[in-house]
Amino acid sequence: MVQRGQKYIWAAMLIMVMAVLAACGTNDNAASGNASQTENAAASSTPDGNTPAATDSTGGDEGGTRTVTGEFGDVEIPAHPQRIAGIYVEDYLKALGVTPVVQWYHPSWGKQDYLGLDVPEFDITGSMEALLDQNPDLIILDGGADQAAYENYSKVAPTYRLPEAVLQDSRLMLAAIADALGVPEKAESVLAEYDAKVADGKVKLQQAIGQEKVAVIRLNVADKSFALFGVKNRYTGVIYDQFGLTPVDMAAEMTEYQSIISEEVIPELGADHIIVFPDNGEWDSADNQDALSILDGPLWKNIPAVKNGKIYKMERSHWQSGAITANSMKLDDLLKAIVK
C-alpha cells in the first residue's frame, strides 16, 4: 500500500511539472508574436506623414506599391517603377535621370527632337498596342490627356495623370513627377541648378535690352498663318514670368494661350525683338523655307525688330515645350541671340 501511494504521488508531481512547462512555452510564443507585430507596425508607419508603401506577398520592396493622388483620383503605382512611359513629359524624366520606354509622337506635331532619345516612338493618335508592347509598369500623363484618355492608358499600366494645379509651372510638374517616382531629392537638385541659371540669365538679359518689347510668333506652315503666344502660354510664358522679358502689349493682355493673327497685324505689335519658329519640322525643309519667304515681304520691312536685325529663328521642338530642360534651352537661345 505504501509503495502504491508513493507511485501516485510521483505521477501527480510529474503531471504538474509538465503543465507548468507547457504554460511557459505558450507565454513565450505569445510574447514573441506580440513583439513581431509591434516591429511590423513600426515599419509600416512613416515619420513624414506620406502614405506608406505597401509590400507584395513576398515582403520584398521591389514588388511594393504606393498610392498617389492624380487629377482623376487615387491610383496605386509601383513603389519602384522600372519601365516608365511619360506621355508629353519625357523632358522631366530625362532631367531626373530616367530614360522612358517610349517617346510620344504625333503625325502633325512631330516629337520632342531636342531630347535626343533613342527609344521607340509611340504615335499618340494610333493604337495602344504599340505602348503595350513596351510593357511599361507606370504611365505618367500631363494635361493633354482627358479622363477618357486616362482610362485607356490605365488599361495598359497604372497611370498617374498630373493634377491640373501643377501644370502651369514646370517646377511644380518636376516635383510632382519626382515624388511619384520616389526621388524627390533629385528634383530639388535639378531645380537648384535651374534657378541659379535663371537668376544669372535674367540679370544679363535685363542689362542687354531693358524694357524693350518681345513677341513670340509661331509660323503655321500649312496655311501660312501666325500664332502670337501670350504671357499665359505654357510653352513660352516662362520668358516673361521667369526670365524677365517684356511682352508686346497684345501678348500681355491676352487671356488665352495664343491668338491667330494676320500678317497685317505684325507691324502693329511694336516688337523690338521677334522670336519665330515653325509649327513642325526644321527651318531648312522645303515647306518651311517657302513659308519663311513671308518674312521677306514688304509688310515686315518697317518692323523695328526686322530693321534692326532682331528677329530670331528658333528650333521649334523645345520652343513648343514648357518643360524644365526645354526652358533651360530657351534661356540659352536668348542669351546667345540677345546678349553680346
Rank of each mutant, 00 (worst) to 15 (best):
R234P: 08
I239F: 06
V214L: 14
G230T: 11
F243A: 03
D223A: 06
I217P: 02
V221E: 04
Y235R: 11
V216G: 08
I217F: 12
F229E: 00
Y240N: 04
Y235E: 01
F226K: 02
I217S: 09
V238H: 11
I239W: 00
G237S: 09
S225M: 08
V221T: 01
F229G: 00
R234G: 09
A215Q: 12
T236K: 00
D241F: 08
A215D: 15
D241Y: 10
N220I: 02
G237V: 10
N220C: 07
F226W: 10
A227K: 03
Y235G: 01
Y240V: 06
N220V: 13
Y240G: 10
Q242I: 15
S225G: 03
V216Q: 01
R218Q: 06
T236I: 08
R218I: 08
R234N: 14
Y240I: 03
N233G: 03
D241K: 13
L228F: 10
Q242R: 15
F243L: 04
G230N: 12
R218K: 07
L228Q: 13
F229M: 07
Q242V: 12
N220W: 10
A222I: 03
V214D: 13
A215P: 12
K224D: 08
V231F: 04
V214R: 10
V221M: 02
F229S: 09
G230Y: 02
F243T: 05
V231S: 15
G230E: 05
A222G: 01
R234K: 14
A227L: 11
A227G: 12
V238D: 12
V221R: 03
T236Y: 00
S225T: 08
N233C: 02
G237D: 13
R218F: 08
F243E: 03
I239H: 01
K232D: 11
A227C: 10
L219K: 09
R218V: 01
S225D: 13
